[in-house]
Amino acid sequence: MANAPHGPASYFPTIEAKYGRTVDEWLTLLAATEQTKHAALVTWLKTEHGMGHGHATALVQYHLNPEKWARA
């Protein structure tokens, strides 16, 4: 499918189902942290919210570069 999400956005449905928050809620939380670096944000999601590495990385990649990724 040409319009199917790719990259980090392809993880979003699973992230929402597994962790009980919408992607917009996760992005709001990321924006509210004092962290600005990729690794620090991934670590924060993993330690503070129990998120797996792949899901945390997908959210952070999107958060730091939203214009690069299509979102359904």
Rank of each mutant, 00 (worst) to 15 (best):
residue 47 T to Y: 02
residue 8 P to A: 08
residue 59 L to P: 05
residue 31 A to N: 11
residue 21 R to M: 12
residue 36 T to P: 00
residue 35 Q to A: 14
residue 11 Y to M: 09
residue 47 T to V: 05
residue 46 K to I: 02
residue 64 L to V: 10
residue 55 H to K: 03
residue 5 P to M: 13
residue 36 T to F: 00
residue 60 V to F: 05
residue 27 L to E: 12
residue 22 T to I: 08
residue 56 A to N: 02
residue 37 K to N: 06
residue 19 Y to H: 14
residue 32 A to V: 01
residue 34 E to K: 14
residue 66 P to C: 11
residue 54 G to Q: 11
residue 51 M to L: 13
residue 19 Y to P: 10
residue 31 A to P: 02
residue 58 A to G: 09
residue 11 Y to E: 10
residue 12 F to V: 03
residue 6 H to M: 05
residue 13 P to K: 14
residue 62 Y to A: 04
residue 28 T to H: 10
residue 26 W to S: 04
residue 39 A to H: 12
residue 1 M to C: 09
residue 24 D to L: 10
residue 56 A to I: 02
residue 51 M to Y: 09
residue 62 Y to K: 08
residue 71 R to S: 06
residue 58 A to E: 07
residue 65 N to L: 11
residue 42 V to D: 01
residue 30 L to M: 13
residue 58 A to C: 09
residue 23 V to I: 15
residue 28 T to L: 10
residue 29 L to V: 05
residue 56 A to S: 15
residue 40 A to C: 00
residue 70 A to S: 13
residue 28 T to C: 04
residue 65 N to R: 14
residue 54 G to P: 01
residue 11 Y to A: 10
residue 32 A to F: 00
residue 32 A to K: 14
residue 10 S to C: 07
residue 50 G to N: 13
residue 26 W to I: 07
residue 57 T to K: 06
residue 46 K to N: 04
residue 43 T to H: 07
residue 21 R to F: 05
residue 56 A to G: 11
residue 46 K to C: 03
residue 14 T to A: 15
residue 67 E to Q: 14
residue 16 E to D: 07
residue 21 R to W: 00
residue 36 T to C: 00
residue 25 E to R: 08
residue 45 L to T: 05
residue 23 V to N: 11
residue 39 A to V: 14
residue 41 L to Y: 00
residue 12 F to I: 07
residue 70 A to E: 11
residue 48 E to L: 06
residue 45 L to M: 08
residue 21 R to Q: 12
residue 67 E to T: 10
residue 56 A to K: 02
residue 11 Y to S: 08
residue 10 S to P: 06
residue 49 H to Q: 11
residue 38 H to R: 14
residue 66 P to E: 09
residue 67 E to M: 04
residue 24 D to E: 15
residue 48 E to I: 03
residue 25 E to Q: 13
residue 9 A to G: 12
residue 28 T to D: 13
residue 16 E to Y: 00
residue 51 M to S: 06
residue 60 V to I: 12
residue 14 T to S: 15
residue 8 P to D: 01
residue 23 V to C: 11
residue 44 W to T: 03
residue 4 A to F: 06
residue 4 A to I: 06
residue 34 E to N: 13
residue 67 E to K: 13
residue 2 A to W: 15
residue 31 A to E: 13
residue 10 S to Y: 09
residue 41 L to N: 03
